[in-house]
Structure formats: C-alpha cells, structure tokens
Amino acid sequence: MKQTFLVKHAVGGRAFLDSAKQNVAYTVDPFGDGWKFTAKVPWSDRVEELLAHRTELNVFVFKEFDDRPTLKTWYYVGEGPVEYDPDRSELTIVAASRIEYDPHQYSV
C-alpha cells in the first residue's frame, strides 16, 4: 500500500506539499475531536505560501492499494491552527473533521 500526504490550495488546487514528490516525514494522530498532522519540511517559498493560505487548505491522505480502488481522505482544517516551527523545521496542521471517499463511488 502506498500512502501520500498532500496539502493543496482550496482555490484551484495548487499543491503546497506532496509527499509523492518530495521526501516528507509525517505523522497524523487523533487530536481532541480531530486530527493533528506533524510534518518535517524545510522552509521554502511553498511553505510560506501554505501558511499565507492557512484558512484555504485542502489536506489529503491517499491510500493506493494493489487489489482495490484508491481510498482518499480529505481533512477539513477550518480555523486550524496551522503553524510552522523554524527551529524544528516542523509544520503542524490541526484538522477538525474528515471525509473518506472512493472517487469511483459516484455515478460519473
């Protein structure tokens, strides 16, 4: 099973972080009523853009399997918080809720 962590701009889908294209060590754990992502990423223009659009993020985890369709999980960030610790090169994103979906479950 291949798992991808993806953070995109909600307006149009520009990718700010894509673990399939850059080496990103990350964890996602239950946090209060939601979930908390912790990712080790060096500071970059993309991280700066991500933080500038912290209230307009689409956060995904894609799980790709050999024997069944990809399962996508989208996380609702809402008010976050979304923060970056430069000393630890660590991005944290708190999500309030999530929706799991199979892209093929729809009729079209």
Partner: peptide, 11 residues
C-alpha cells in the same frame, strides 16, 4: 467530461 470527485469547504 467533467470534474471528478473533489472536496470544497467554506466557500
């Protein structure tokens, strides 16, 4: 043709 399954929030 069209846009496949994708999320939206707060819009």
């Amino acid at each position: 043709r069209g846009f496949g399954a994708h999320p939206h929030s707060d819009m």
